[in-house]
Design a protein around this nucleic acid. Structure first.
Lengths: 139, 139
DNA sequence: TTTTTTGCAAACCATTTGCAATTAG
DNA sequence: CTAATTGCAAATGGTTTGCAAAAAA
């Protein structure tokens, strides 16, 4: 007997899958709690890493402190707003620089994956520099 | 009166500048200590962030836990070995995907910087999968 | 002298872990 | 049944911070 499909696991996955804002473990925890009572943060972390190991979610470690989770596992990039912290998915407009990868491969490196992240200001924060709230609160 | 050029600040900067392995704050601390007695870790952190604010060093937050520091501030990418944790600089072989950036710009985002990181196995770890030490210890 | 910086230790925050009690299969 | 999972709380690891003493300018 192994690999159980617990209520908690399902809830954690559903939460990440339905989120559009790349929530942190804490945010996932808060959202899961709104649907079912008393799920511990530790359990959320454990399920999150289990899902990551199974490739059902991707872990994003951007400039920020806390890791963020993304249920879209297909290759794509991200944009991080340096003002409000929001993370957006970026459609890969053209193939990422094969040049560097080939360079590495020739030098004996085995490239397994790559991550491209853009930093700057999102439309809301870039528009005018006063009237923006710090975060789009994870309710 | 402001912005003092202390022995500690100089030592921290010199250490990062002379390093080729993108050391963590802890590693910088250890190396600084070899040159001058009793410098506290807190001071190393403070100086590191001061240098970062002045753009004299770049802070790298890769998949690992601890931040790493790089004295090369010109745009370039990195490769992270998933086995030994080593970080290597990558010469940007060809222009980074202008496509995605243009896409973002058109959508109202202001792109200020970008970071491309490759993950995989470095030559040493990829060669054979047994005889490799976990880290290239910072002597 | 005056103000920044340091050292130290405690505080913090995100994440992990040990263990007894639950629970899915 | 019984091994995997949970909840809880304590432990960890990286980084920050308050404060009095030390040292640049």
């Amino acid at each position: 007997v192994k690999e159980r499909r617990t209520r908690q696991l399902r809830a954690v996955y559903a939460t990440v899958r339905d989120a559009v804002d790349h929530p942190t473990a804490d945010e996932v925890h808060a959202r899961v709690r709104r649907r079912m009572a008393a799920v511990s943060l530790g359990t959320v972390y454990r399920n999150l890493q289990k899902l990551a190991a199974q490739q059902h979610v991707r872990v994003l470690r951007l400039a920020n402190r806390a890791a963020r989770y993304d249920a879209i596992v297909e290759p794509h990039d991200h944009f991080v707003c340096e003002r409000c912290g929001a993370v957006a998915d970026v459609v890969r407009g053209e193939r990422v620089p094969a040049g560097a990868a080939i360079h590495l491969t020739r030098a004996g490196y085995r490239v397994r994956s790559q991550e491209l992240t853009f930093y700057g200001l999102c439309p809301r924060c870039g528009a005018d520099r006063r009237s923006t709230r710090r975060r789009q609160g994870g309710s």
